[in-house]
Amino acid sequence: MKLSRSPWLIHYDCSSCNGCDIEVLAATMPRYDVERFGIINTGDPMHADILLTTGGCNHQNAPVLKQIYEQMPNPKVVVAVGTCACTGGVFKDCYNILGGTDTVIPVDVYVTGCAARPESIIDGVVQALAILDQKYEAYTTDPKAKEGN
């Protein structure tokens, strides 16, 4: 049983300029068609296995991001898409910006780029799938060990 054959993802825009968001959407369009890997862009954290984040985290959206992450059932992975989601990018030193996604929730894969290209987003998600399978194995051997899932 491989979870990676049916990865459903949820996309949350922390405070992105929409550059990366458009590229995420482009990945679901006919040219790149991520659904051929069984990937569905769902809007519901309860259904999702992969959390895709774009943009740097700020004080307002940090609790929202945390809540979305907590609503996702285990095992789950997080992919930070774009420079801002990885480190905070050019907004890093702004008074309202906390930094990258990993300042709020644990991140498994970092996809860099401004904006991240659809090819690299798909590559990042495919890498996340391998991590998802590893986490599932750890989850089945010890369901109580949910730390890090």
Binding site: M1, L3, S6, D33, E35, R36, G38, D49, P73, N74
Partner: peptide, 20 residues
């Protein structure tokens, strides 16, 4: 689009049953 395999719903179901 190319689309997923015709067995995709079956894999989706297996995934759902395996999740927390």
């Amino acid at each position: 689009r190319q689309g997923p395999s015709v067995y995709q719903p079956w894999w989706d179901l297996q995934k759902l049953l395996a999740k927390e």
